[in-house]
Computed example of a mutant assay.
Amino acid sequence: MNVIDFRFRPNTPEVINGIANSVMFKDLCEAIDFHKQKPEPFGQIIEGLEQNNVVKAVITGRDCETTYASMANGNGAVLDFCTKAPEKFVGFWGVDPHKGMDAVRDLEKAVTENETINGAAIDPYLAKIYPNDAKYYPIYSKCCELGIPMIFTTGTASFVPGAVIDHVAPRYIDFVARDFPELKIVISHGGYPWVNEAIIVAQRNKNVFMEISEYELWPMADAYVEAANTIIGDKLLFASAHPFIDYREQLDKYAKLAFEESVYAKVMYENAAGILGV
């Protein structure tokens, strides 16, 4: 079965070192023993994806320069990876809402000048504002104009200094989905711990999709699978969060989750293919 991974970063030495030493994620990396993750040469990473039938992988950029004086796994790295392997990687450009129209123009330039950049990504908990804050709205409008989807990073933001978990509650994404019905939205990390809230936001908005990377086996996570088998079968996407969790481990994990056969095929490939136009 072909697979599309909707949250992936190549585990090159530069990426591994950058994540482990970043201001935002250093404490988290220590807590999960991230240092055990082994870096691989770029060519070996591509070979591994091929061997595991991962035909496309989305690499999300991150721009939190205003609030954390850091780009983390920044847009330059995303563009570099996607340029090296355009047949394999799809780039989503990280956007800092505090940069105003400069951010909007930067996003437009990235998408119009690079065929491998086909989406945008935001991290409200790193921006320290809600996703329905007015600072984001020019960015959403530009995404609609460009016809590109947007990834909203949610989740618990564990150990990130200064992060407020309420900034990524799915209820605020619901406002955005209603204000911008043309904008395809992907909730990354399942809106955890607001599991049922995230499910309903995806179910009631035609333009909202979701991936649950890192939280597949956490408390209450069985509701994601139940919902996929009943009310959001066309909305759930496979995502590994590699290299925080190795994508090969995630592939094995998803094969064991209680998805119905037809739903499993949608989760692993078909739903993502529709969003990306593959």
Rank of each mutant, 00 (worst) to 15 (best):
D5Q: 12
F8K: 09
R9L: 13
E14L: 12
V15K: 01
N17W: 05
N21W: 01
C29W: 00
H35F: 05
H35L: 01
P39Y: 03
Q44V: 13
Q44P: 00
G48E: 14
E50I: 12
N53L: 06
N53D: 15
V55G: 05
K56G: 05
V58I: 15
T60W: 01
R62M: 11
C64G: 06
T66P: 06
T66E: 11
T66F: 12
T67A: 01
T67P: 01
Y68F: 14
S70V: 02
S70G: 07
M71S: 12
N73P: 00
G76P: 08
F81T: 01
K84E: 12
K84L: 12
K84T: 00
V90K: 06
G91T: 03
H98T: 04
D102K: 13
R105W: 02
E108Q: 14
V111D: 08
T112K: 15
I117A: 06
I117M: 15
G119A: 09
A120V: 05
A121I: 00
P124W: 08
Y125N: 09
I129A: 07
Y130S: 10
P131T: 10
P131C: 11
A134K: 15
I139C: 11
I139E: 07
Y140L: 09
K142W: 04
C143L: 08
C144R: 03
E145S: 13
E145V: 03
P149V: 02
F152S: 01
G155Q: 02
A157Q: 01
S158E: 13
S158D: 14
V160R: 00
G162H: 05
D166L: 07
D166H: 11
P170N: 09
V176P: 08
R178N: 11
F180W: 10
F180Y: 15
P181W: 09
E182W: 01
K184Y: 05
S188L: 04
S188Y: 00
H189V: 02
G191C: 09
P193M: 12
P193A: 09
E197Y: 06
E197V: 04
A198C: 13
A202S: 15
Q203M: 13
R204I: 14
N205A: 10
N207W: 09
F209D: 00
F209S: 12
M210H: 06
E211P: 07
I212V: 15
S213C: 15
E216P: 00
E216D: 12
P219Q: 08
A221H: 04
A227G: 04
A228V: 01
N229S: 08
T230P: 00
I231C: 14
I231L: 11
I232N: 02
I232W: 03
S240P: 07
S240F: 03
H242S: 10
H242F: 06
P243K: 06
P243Y: 03
Q250W: 00
D252H: 12
D252F: 07
F259I: 08
E260D: 14
E261H: 12
K266Y: 01
E270A: 14
E270I: 10
N271I: 11
A273I: 08
I275P: 07
V278N: 04
